[in-house]
Design a protein around this nucleic acid. Structure first.
Lengths: 141, 141
DNA sequence: TAGGTGTTGACAATGATTGTCATGACTGGG
DNA sequence: CCCAGTCATGACAATCATTGTCAACACCTA
């Protein structure tokens, strides 16, 4: 897949934004702003941490990336293919991520909410485990 | 319900721990450590913020309270009645909380995980919306 | 190419949470 | 009932991700 233009609703296309996007495209795991910043600096970029944060935020608002929260509270970002609502199944060893549609959960959530008189219901759901490969390694060991 | 002794696996029972527990017992919404600290100080207690944090952490580890994370990343705590695994349906206006069992979700999560070769799967799920009462208020307005 | 405007980046500021450590409060044994 | 030993407390400093600020800069269009 070729690098997309940074975003429709962001006024300008800059080196920094392009660099961040490219990085995300070659990565199928969630990364933190700090991670991405470190990688970019490592690669010789002079990009600022503030910019990385701002850019990722903008991407998130534009639905270009998905955000997830670590137990510690940090934000992780990942380029997402699916357009519609979906959830993530994340390997807690290698970070590999699978996108999962969850019509079952949506229905369940709506029903439960209705049962209790709640309206305007949203939900957050995350699955985490060990992917096939990492399961192997652990077993081998 | 009478105030329970602070905890089986905490060595000592102190005024501070009892105070925190009592507060949680009279509250059916999630509260932050800072909130609880503020309330206790308001009520004349000289309890320290550090203590509140530590106590809540200990309670959480002992499964005396449930923890949830705000989008901002803060921790919220609430005394929980159900012993088994369950989820929460939280009103984002008044904070009222309903405990919800989710066998449907558990099953779904396990199936999805298995389909992708994942093992040792866990999940986090949260429902948030407007409770019946708050829905009314908003409509009226 | 020139200018206006959106972006950047260094730095300071925020704010929740955690670490530290001397002082103080429980509890069981005598 | 009192004492010692140990665990808990609280004031304070330290962390650390994230956000705010603002002058300097880069992109895009005319």
């Amino acid at each position: 897949m070729a690098t997309k233009p940074p975003a429709e609703n962001m006024a300008r296309s800059t080196k920094q934004r392009t660099a961040i996007l490219e990085l995300l495209e070659h990565d199928d795991a969630f990364r933190s702003a700090q991670d991405l910043h470190a990688i970019l600096r490592e690669a010789g970029s002079k990009i600022g941490l503030t910019t990385v944060y701002r850019t990722l935020q903008a991407f998130a608002e534009a639905d270009i990336v998905d955000v997830m929260r670590l137990p510690g509270g940090d934000h992780l970002y990942r380029l997402c293919s699916a357009e519609e609502h979906h959830h993530h199944l994340v390997c807690r060893s290698c970070g590999r991520t699978v996108e999962v549609a969850g019509p079952t959960v949506e229905r369940w959530a709506n029903k439960v909410a209705a049962d209790h008189g709640f309206t305007e219901v949203g939900h957050t759901l995350e699955l985490h485990g060990l992917c096939a490969e990492c399961s192997q390694s652990f077993k081998a060991q």
